[in-house]
């Protein structure tokens, strides 16, 4: 079978497949009141897309590093083994052990955080969720938006709040990279029960102290991390699509031959 057919088929199916798979993500909660117009940002935060590419190995490798450095302190990935992850991501064994795995972990161990559940409950009020399937249950765009909308909120115990998940228990652990942001609100005239009133709605973020990364760098950091979570949610997905092309090609050929056979058998039926 020629390479061009495979390429054509993969082009035919893959974007559609990806579109259909991401289409079902739960929609972000709409902002209260009237439409929110980002003054500085061109895109509403509700419309932000992860835009990750799960077949991009170097992006996954960076995502794995980010996960190990920033997430694993609290969040486990209990369905994922270090060895399998490093094999899939083509990270050499030695490098995996030196840079990604905790010092006492063995390659066949599951990727489990060392945070004890009772400590987590004491410190944050709840156990941090396992992230093995987070990209499947919430969708990649949800996670991307979550990490684009942390802001300072002195009213909360962690001094942190989030537009996607109001009252989030998790502190803004990436603020050293992204910078510290506060939410700027604007007054919008709305009509409630026939009476005009003024409502405070989110307008845009203002950065009060910059982080180590520029916005573009931070977005890339986030995209790689979300990409890794996408991979971890369904680690066979890249293999699955490449096997699928051959299965579909075989079945098309099978159907074609079966059709010719049927025509031949039926030529005397009038």
């Amino acid at each position: 079978m020629s390479k061009s057919i495979v390429l054509a088929l993969s082009l035919l199916f893959t974007p559609w497949a990806l579109a259909a798979e991401t289409a079902a993500e739960p929609a972000a909660e709409p902002a209260a009141g009237a439409a929110v117009e980002g003054a500085a940002e061109a895109v509403n935060w509700q419309d932000l897309k992860a835009g990750n590419e799960v077949s991009n190995i170097s992006s996954l490798q960076e995502g794995a590093r980010n996960f190990s450095n920033y997430c694993l302190g609290c969040h486990s990935m209990k369905f994922m083994r270090w060895s399998r992850m490093c094999d899939d991501l083509r990270v050499p064994k030695a490098e995996c052990q030196a840079n990604l795995m905790p010092p006492n972990a063995k390659p066949a161990d599951y990727m489990v955080s060392s945070l004890r559940a009772e400590d987590a409950v004491a410190w944050f009020g709840k156990e941090p969720p396992d992230l093995s399937l987070i990209a499947r249950s919430r969708g990649v765009d949800y996670i991307y938006r979550l990490f684009k909308t942390f802001y300072v909120d002195p009213a909360k115990p962690t001094h942190t709040n989030n537009l996607v998940l109001d009252g989030i228990a998790m502190p803004a652990v990436l603020s050293e990279l992204e910078g510290v942001k506060t939410a700027v609100y604007k007054n919008v005239d709305v009509v409630v029960d026939g009476k005009p009133s003024v409502q405070k709605v989110f307008d845009h973020f203002s950065t009060t102290s910059p982080g180590q990364l520029t916005e573009a760098q931070y977005d890339k950091f986030l995209r790689n991390t979300v990409n890794f979570l996408d991979y971890a949610g369904d680690p066979t997905q890249v293999d699955r699509r490449s096997i699928g092309i051959w299965v579909v090609l075989f079945l098309l050929a099978f159907t074609g031959i079966a059709w010719l056979m049927k025509k031949d058998y039926w030529k005397d039926v009038h």
């Binding site: 699955r240 699509r241 699928g244 299965v247 099978f254």
Partner: peptide, 16 residues
Amino acid sequence: GFFLTLFAVVVFFVPT
């Protein structure tokens, strides 16, 4: 053949 082709497209490309 027709059915399995469509079914395989779902299984391999849009399982959810």
